[in-house]
């Protein structure tokens, strides 16, 4: 089964459409994460796929079938809402039974299946609780179990972890990952937390200005993004405009570097790829600020006309005003458009 979103455009009626031309294809069993800043239209896209909104242009296809005009309840699109949307007047069991009742399954089958799903997400002991008596994590599991109970052909999750605290979020995202990959349906996952996206996805798409401007595996996007905006969203602290110098090199604010291949407009490197120390000669700079972040130390170092951000071993112990030398490994420098 595959979910395909083909050139979808959508506007709420304001002057600028929220989605201009979005195309996504998610394969069977694949977890595709849609990354994007707040207000970029992620929820809007999910609503289009689920059938709550109808696109102005483009199509939504499921397994080659055009479902753009099919009613939400006939699409087989399972959705886990940002706030879970559990039915407050039904206990956990009845929430999970809801989709099966809607489809008139046989009683025994429903019960068996509900038990199975509770087991799967680990909420068997909570079956008789009302939603108001559940913790955030338990609600989230219930919401997933309920979505699965509808036998969805595709699963949509809208920031399912955003309502939880940091520790729980990290714990649950591992669980969620293994659960999602064990399902054999395309999954579209939404978050604006890049770490969560990395941990959970097979593939990530970055939504900006109504378009997917870049997509790829987590590794690719983490290490070798192609677009300036993607890089900056994914934590490339250092992005500089460059100029071509001819004869196979480019001019950067930190000095020229040899280059072959296409000319980028920018280059970038992650703060954690900067090496600090005396060896290798390299660049010299003065620390403007240093911020201790547990396992690493963040330095803002002024060097030539720019500021370089680096994440280094805290034992270095550089403080404000210190002179430091550093170098940037050639292969960690990424060309950007």
């Amino acid at each position: 089964m595959t979910l395909e979103v083909v050139s979808v455009g959508f506007g709420y009626g304001g002057s600028v459409p929220v989605l201009k031309d979005v195309s996504i294809s998610v394969g069977d069993g694949e977890v595709y994460t849609l990354l994007g800043s707040s207000g970029s239209g992620k929820t809007t896209l999910l609503n289009i796929i689920a059938g709550f909104l109808r696109p102005d242009s483009g199509r939504v296809m499921l397994d080659g079938e055009d479902i753009t005009h099919i009613r939400p309840e006939r699409r087989g699109v399972g959705m886990v809402f940002q706030d879970y949307a559990l039915f407050p007047h039904m206990n956990v069991r009845n929430n999970i039974l809801f989709p099966m009742k809607a489809r008139n399954l046989a009683r025994a089958e429903m019960d068996g299946r509900a038990d199975e799903l509770c087991e799967l997400v680990g909420i068997s002991h909570l079956r008789d609780r009302m939603p108001s008596e559940l913790s955030g994590g338990e609600k989230q599991r219930t919401a997933i179990a309920r979505a699965l109970a509808a036998d969805p052909r595709v699963l949509l999750l809208d920031e399912p972890l955003s309502a939880l605290d940091a520790a729980l979020r990290i714990e649950l995202r591992g669980e969620l990952r293994s659960l999602l990959s064990s399902l054999e349906v395309p999954t579209l996952y939404i978050t604006h937390d890049q770490r969560e996206a990395m941990a959970i996805s097979d593939r990530i798409g970055y939504l900006l200005d109504g378009r997917i401007i870049e997509e790829g595996t987590p590794e690719k996007l983490y290490w070798r993004p192609e677009r300036v905006q993607t890089a900056s969203f994914l934590g490339f602290g250092n992005i500089f405009r460059v100029k071509a110098r001819g004869n196979g090199s480019i001019a950067t604010p930190l000095g020229p570097i040899p280059w072959n291949g296409d000319m980028p407009s920018h280059i970038g490197f992650r703060p954690d790829s900067v090496r600090i120390g005396t060896d290798g000669g390299g660049l010299k700079g003065k620390v403007i600020s240093s911020e201790y972040r547990g396992s690493s130390l963040f330095l803002r170092v002024s060097c030539r006309s720019v500021v370089v951000i680096m994440e280094v071993d805290p034992h270095i112990g550089a403080g404000k005003g210190d002179e430091v030398t550093f170098s940037i490994p050639r292969d960690s420098i990424v060309p950007l458009r």
Binding site: N47, A50, G51, F52, R71, P72, E73, R74, R75, G76, V77, G78, M79, F81, A85, F87, F98, P99, A102, R103, R146, A147, A149, A150
Partner: peptide
């Protein structure tokens, strides 16, 4: 919406 996506008319 949740109800609709879960297959309820």
């Amino acid at each position: 919406r949740a109800a609709r996506s879960l297959g309820a008319s």
